[in-house]
Write a protein that binds this DNA or RNA. Structure first.
Lengths: 339, 339
DNA sequence: TGCCTTTGTTTAATCGATTAAACAAATATG
DNA sequence: CATATTTGTTTAATCGATTAAACAAAGGCA
């Protein structure tokens, strides 16, 4: 890279000290500085195409104006959309975003947190992987400003932004029941993540309060390692029960995407033979021959609020904020049985 | 954030100079340094949970070990997948990745390039937006190491990694013709991007060499601003020709996704009434009732090579590399007419 | 005129790590 | 034993920007 222009270069060219140049370019002490020198400094800066060296500034100010964003999986559109919004929001506030994808892996999470802290980020936004509570506790002990997004843990008082998963799940299951489904299966991940557990809890509660006895054989928990096979196995199992399910709820977009691809190959009619509902959108929602009823999370709001909470936390170190947002039930054809 | 531990802290604790600590922790001058002091330094570093201050190091070494990645649109799975691979590859080489999403916007591209350079990245990997050739030229003039990925410009000799778009397009159109299609429309973006122009060129060439006269009324170029509407309009137009097309090629996954969602609503059978083919995969490829024949780009290879080329360029400043990879034709049901 | 403000600018320390060069002590060599 | 070499460690300058404090010159006021 070509040699860089420094404050000193400008100072020498104009014939003043670097201090003065710094003041001028940062618009400080404006009432004290001579108008003509100021202008000259600005002119020369422009002429030499001066770029501030953030490294040097950061070393002195101990602020990098950089935030770290760690998401469970960046190639999931749910998170890449969040990432994009956070980046926009950060940029509006003159922050840069450093990304990392955890790949749902606690070990990788440690490494990335470590890497980001090593890079002196001012704070973190994290959609944590399962079993990373100790890492979160570590951040807390070290007083690193951070915000959890989408996912959360109990027992620790931290900044977080997420939807009311119980309520969202309850509402979509209730909707299925109101529209003709009576035996509703659920496919979710085998995980310690609370947000997903809440979804199962909401599902069960909705069944119960509609007088439906929930059965263990309606609940399938698949692993991350072998999601595709296990989703297919779960669907097969639920459909070959003595009394097969007549509806399935998928608790995540990756699950519904695999599920729909498979259901696509079965001699089944959605929604009449089998109603479908899911958390989160994906292209699947519209592409499937029966568009999918789903829970739509307020992504923009979540991402923007998380960013703002983080920036506040970086600058003012206020007490923690737990923000619970409402999700929207988007009704499409996949959940409405003809009767 | 809690007060940081510096080299000085370790030095004081052990009773040596910071120089020695630096040498030990960086494994330098190993043959000169006392074994016991070295061990003690390492112990204390661990005990105090020392983290190197990359900012300070970078200021001195003029290397940030950070690369910038700018993609046209991070929420497109094509690019988020690339992003993830590049991140992994960079991590293996002890580099960190700073991301930015251009949103196909030349102005935003300037801003992000500026931001990344201000952050002193050592180099850039860019999937450039349309009409950003001047920006690329600027990078070149300033001797910033960079690699273009997926997209490219003529007239400038730079590092780049991309597929042979002409050939890929030719092969998929040829495949359509061999499998019963005779009147093949194409939906592409109205853009100055060469990779897309090459796809149109390959399409026309394949028609010609199969003795089919290509018609202007088979070629539709839609805008980014209004993609969905225009894709739908294009499909309508092609289907209501006196002699309607019997196949459509979409030159990008965003186009095929919109297209398929729309075709899904039409009283048409794919592939018999209308064959479909597309560049790039998306969930659409499998979810659509007739899985979609498509061109599969070697993403992992592209991303890894781009990263390696960049790192070479950063470290050795070799001459430029133009890498052209072969794409794979993945045949599914959407392109094979029964007859 | 003498002293006090105000205005405009410079000095110099600092952030934390790197590293060439200097230095001192121990050991080897003739 | 004197000198050369090796071993182990420190000194001090440096990267580029920030900023409190010092300073000088000009203007204001009695």
């Amino acid at each position: 890279m070509r040699k860089k222009v420094s404050l000193k270069d400008i100072a020498e060219r104009v014939g003043v000290s670097t201090a003065l140049v710094s003041y001028v370019l940062n618009n400080q002490k404006t009432n004290r500085i001579g108008k003509d020198v100021a202008q000259k400094i600005r002119d020369v800066a422009l002429e030499l195409n001066y770029r501030i060296n953030h490294i040097a500034r950061s070393l002195k100010t101990k602020k990098t104006h950089t935030i770290g964003l760690l998401v469970a999986d960046i190639s999931n559109s749910f998170y890449s959309t969040i990432a994009k919004i956070i980046e926009d929001e950060a940029e509006k506030n003159n922050y840069t975003v450093l990304f990392g994808s955890l790949d749902e892996n606690a070990e990788k999470s440690w490494k990335l947190i470590d890497a980001l802290l090593n890079h002196q980020v001012d704070g973190l936004i994290i959609a944590p992987a399962a079993d990373t509570a100790p890492q979160i506790a570590y951040l807390q002990e070290n007083e690193v400003p951070f915000v959890l997004i989408d996912r959360y843990f109990t027992d620790i008082d931290v900044n977080s932004v997420a939807i009311n998963n119980f309520k969202a799940s309850y509402s979509i299951v209730d909707h299925l029941i109101q529209n003709g489904s009576t035996r509703i299966g659920i496919v979710t991940f085998a995980t310690t993540l609370l947000n997903l557990q809440e979804r199962t809890r909401g599902y069960s509660a909705a069944l119960t309060s509609n007088g439906i006895t929930s059965t263990a054989s309606w609940i399938y928990k698949v692993t991350l390692a072998d999601t595709k096979q296990e989703v297919e196995a779960a669907i097969n199992a639920m459909l070959s029960l003595p009394e097969p399910v007549d509806a399935i709820l998928f608790t995540a977009n990756t699950l519904s995407t695999f599920g729909l691809k498979y259901i696509n190959t079965l001699p089944l009619k959605v929604p009449d033979d089998l109603a479908i509902a899911s958390f989160d959108e994906s292209d699947a929602s519209e592409l499937f021959y029966a568009p999918i009823t789903h829970i739509k999370q307020p992504l923009a709001k979540m991402a923007q609020h998380a960013t703002q909470i983080l920036l506040n936390s970086i600058n003012n170190k206020k007490e923690n904020v737990t923000e619970v947002l409402e999700a929207e039930l988007v009704v499409r054809k996949s959940s409405i049985k003809k009767k």
